[in-house]
Design a binder for these strands. Structure first.
Lengths: 341, 341
DNA sequence: CTGAAAGCGCTTACAG
DNA sequence: CTGAAAGCGCTTACAG
């Protein structure tokens, strides 16, 4: 393993010059740079990151707590992690994974990781209503960026990036409306989570704007399962035989809707248009395919990394980015769409 | 941020003694240790990891390449990552995530990460038939451990941990047999992957052992989708109306089987028993629940980390661990099981 | 059991 | 544009 010193000796310059060739090449004369680069190449030199980090006290590592909540399946986590990694790598950084207890009990882990200089900062996700992590990190002046809002009335501590769920629901409603649907229901979640209220609100507003009914058309499912989605859909159809559209809060609930429609001899995309949320792998694997609102993972990741690693000091508390989801249209909402048989 | 020097000054000992208090406490007299520890506590001292790594040239970081193959959904990746992180943390280590092109094109990334001392070694997963990474890493003498076999005739380079797919299929067959099933089919995959052949073989052997028929009962699906699982199931039922069991190579294919059974008015778990593989979040979210073969993630992760970080030199090429899957029984194979309505 | 000193491999003002 | 020197915060033989 070659060191800076050896490269310097080989190129017959000082170590400082080799360091500059790597970190500030414009400071070298063209011929010197050329010579140094040849030596680097020849000796297959790779700078030792630990030495660099010790000196600069920046590790170029970003901490991400890998969630462990079997209750709420995170079907697009691999997509998110891949996008996050790729975005970090574009800035020469990497993602360090760790586990921590949920809520405020986990904060010592964050603190320790930062204090021991294993990471420069954190990306938070799986934010919850009244998530305590943001305030805690801000108080300790530990850099972080949140994917997801905290949904409090007061201002959220620290910067965040999120996807506009209300806009997503509205897109789904308008899409179904354009396909001629006039009685569009909404499948929601049990707990009054900020996320659920956001998406529910978007559905309600869009329906009102288009002059569509909403009364009795919003159902709260008891959990995020196919069975519950099916049950709620059955309930809706029993109460309103003219129902012709369903916007579901998740792909899982939407799958339940599809199943119940099938059970009743109704054809998704023909008799009733159905949409889901998140464009999980499931959406593309059912038949007909499930129309779903995709979170723009690459954009999200790029924003997260860009805000967190902004060289102009620590992230400003006022940095907030609300991105738009994208409606991926498949057969469940558009007859003759991309069905898969 | 306190340093070792400051702690030493505060405790009125040398830095060496503080270092020993942390890394070799048995070398100190009880009262000295006590005093040093008080100072550490008081100054809230945390050793700088970069300084340590520079000195010892061990970073205590393990690289894992986050896969990006939309073709093959990895529904249990979050479980795997959580288990891997937790196991690493039990040894004071962490997981560093990175992206790399598939196959041999990605090897320079692995090499660079190791040469620049960002990681000590790698955990490989998503192994493919004739995966080139193992041989390459072994040749470069870069430490690694593989989750999954390479399925070559020759000996696999480097140590590995895997789950016995053949044993899993056999468990599923025996379970269905005990429930009275006598004509048990197998839903397989298109390409002749090692994984598929392993699981298929286990089904065939178990059937033969039990005196059950196999002829015409193995179907290859064109892709890992619900639609294909349903199509194949339809084909099987058309050919053999007495079919009463289906072992599917994946939860996705099993879901297809469930759907086709429903479409034909057959009740899963009553008329036909169905099992899947991997116990993905889907298995618990459908109704009836899907019986599925769980990979023992915690054990897998513990073995991976233990072999990779074995202090007795680099992992021996002969280290091989074949773990058993666990059959999680739900309503799809056992009438009155844990159905969810 | 405890301490003084060297050194891990870089970067960064500072001089020339 | 280039170089000599100090120092980031640890650990590790080595002496005492």
């Amino acid at each position: 393993m070659a060191t800076l010193k050896q490269v310097a000796a080989h190129a017959e310059v000082s170590v400082q010059t080799v360091s500059n060739a790597l970190n500030a090449p414009h400071r070298l004369r063209a011929d010197t740079l050329e010579r140094v680069n040849r030596s680097i190449e020849l000796l297959n030199y790779r700078p030792n990151r630990n030495a660099r980090s010790l000196r600069t006290s920046a590790v170029e590592l970003i901490g991400y707590c890998v969630p462990n909540w079997p209750t709420q399946t995170h079907l697009v986590m691999d997509q998110f992690l891949h996008a996050l990694c790729a975005a970090a790598e574009r800035t020469g950084r990497h993602i360090l994974l760790f586990t921590a207890p949920p809520g405020v009990d986990g904060m010592p882990v964050y603190d320790d990781l930062h204090a021991r200089r294993l990471v420069d900062g954190f990306v938070l996700s799986q934010t919850e209503t009244h998530d305590p992590r943001h305030g805690w990190l801000k108080e300790q002046e530990i850099p972080f960026i949140s994917f997801g809002r905290v949904w409090k009335e007061t201002t959220q501590p620290g910067p965040w990036v999120d996807v506009d769920g209300a806009a997503g629901s509205a897109m789904a409603v308008r899409h179904l409306h354009e396909a001629g649907r006039r009685r569009i229901a909404f499948l929601s979640w049990p707990k009054s989570s900020g996320l659920a209220e956001d998406r529910l609100g978007g559905w309600g507003n869009a329906c009102k704007e288009l002059g569509l009914p909403t009364s009795g058309l919003a159902v709260r499912c008891r959990e995020d399962s196919i069975a519950e989605g099916a049950r709620a859909t059955g309930e809706l159809l029993d109460a309103d035989p003219f129902l012709d559209g369903i916007v579901a809060l998740s792909d899982i609930l939407a799958l339940g809707a599809l199943r119940e429609l099938g059970r009743r001899g109704l054809t998704p995309g023909v008799d009733v248009g159905v949409t889901g949320f998140d464009d999980s792998p499931l959406a593309d694997v059912v038949s007909p395919g499930l129309t779903s609102l995709r979170q723009p993972m690459d954009d999200i990741a790029a924003e997260l990394i860009s805000i967190l690693t902004d060289p102009d000091g620590p992230p400003d508390a006022s940095t907030e980015r609300l991105l738009h989801p994208e409606l991926v249209i498949r057969g469940s909402s558009a007859p003759g769409g991309s069905t898969r048989y």
